[in-house]
């Protein structure tokens, strides 16, 4: 094991870490908000909105992220009205394209996950809330959302981990994040195994952190499921 090579590789890769993290953080947050909008459309009464949401979810879950990313990066540039439009300086940037595409993709998956959470809310508990006089936004805010969130969290944490891995695809649209740098190192040095090892370690650590954070959140939200504390003697 060539320690010197390993450590220099590590350093090089770690320099790209902020890019990976930025891709991850931005796409997860934007994607989550977008997903909430989409799921609201999907479960709302409006037929057209629901149809649109259904279509959106179908497209973004059924096609590979790579195609979506290429479509945004290469495809959008084809259109004059985009090139001449006000957003062009932003949309030219590979980083922006990558974040946009990642966010759109995760919104599709997350919307479906949130929808599963909403469907798992026991109808009896919703009925009890309606019987007390709750409706509309109050009902969603106090009863439906908290319960749906608790049901959706396990599946959503899987999705968040997948997002972390998906940031690697940004390397294929010229964003220099960890995987992109790793590939460049491999093709220069041909020392595949070592570079892979270093990059793999970075991703595994990142995933571990994300999973722990999610587990903490789950723990915090599931007090009602745990065994009763030993009763204090009256």
């Amino acid at each position: 094991m060539d320690i010197e090579f390993l450590s220099s590789t590590m350093v090089t890769l770690l320099k790209a870490l902020p890019v990976t993290l930025a891709l991850f953080a931005l796409s997860v947050s934007i994607g989550c908000v977008l997903a909430l909008v989409i799921v609201w459309m999907r479960v709302g009464g409006n037929r057209y909105l629901a149809g649109f949401a259904k279509g959106y979810i179908f497209v973004f879950r059924g096609s590979p992220l790579l195609i979506q990313m290429f479509l945004v990066f290469y495809g959008l540039a084809q259109f004059d009205f985009i090139r001449n439009g006000p957003l062009w300086p932003l949309l030219r940037e590979p980083f922006v394209c990558a974040v946009l595409s990642l966010a759109l993709c995760t919104a599709g998956y997350s919307a479906e996950i949130f929808r599963g959470g909403i469907r798992s809310v026991p109808p009896r508990e919703i009925e009890a809330a309606r019987a007390i006089g709750m409706s509309g936004f109050l009902l969603v805010r106090r009863i439906i959302a908290p319960i749906a969130l608790r049901f959706a969290l396990p599946a959503y944490s899987t999705e968040v981990v997948l997002m972390m891995k998906s940031t690697s695809l940004a390397s294929l649209v010229t964003v220099w994040e960890v995987t992109g740098v790793a590939q460049r190192l491999i093709s220069h040095t041909y020392r595949t195994m070592e570079v892979f090892l270093c990059a793999a370690v970075i991703y595994l650590v990142l995933n571990f952190i994300v999973l722990q954070a999610m587990a903490l959140l789950e723990h915090f939200l599931s007090r009602h499921l745990r065994a009763a504390p030993p009763a204090a003697k009256a």
Binding site: V161, K165, S168, T179, I186, T192, A199, A200, Y203, L204
Partner: peptide, 18 residues
């Protein structure tokens, strides 16, 4: 853990180049 936790792209590079 490794093959679910590491990006697919990296694994493909590993197999192909390696």
């Amino acid at each position: 853990t490794i093959f679910r936790g590491v990006p697919e792209l990296l694994i493909i590079y590993l197999i192909y180049f390696g």
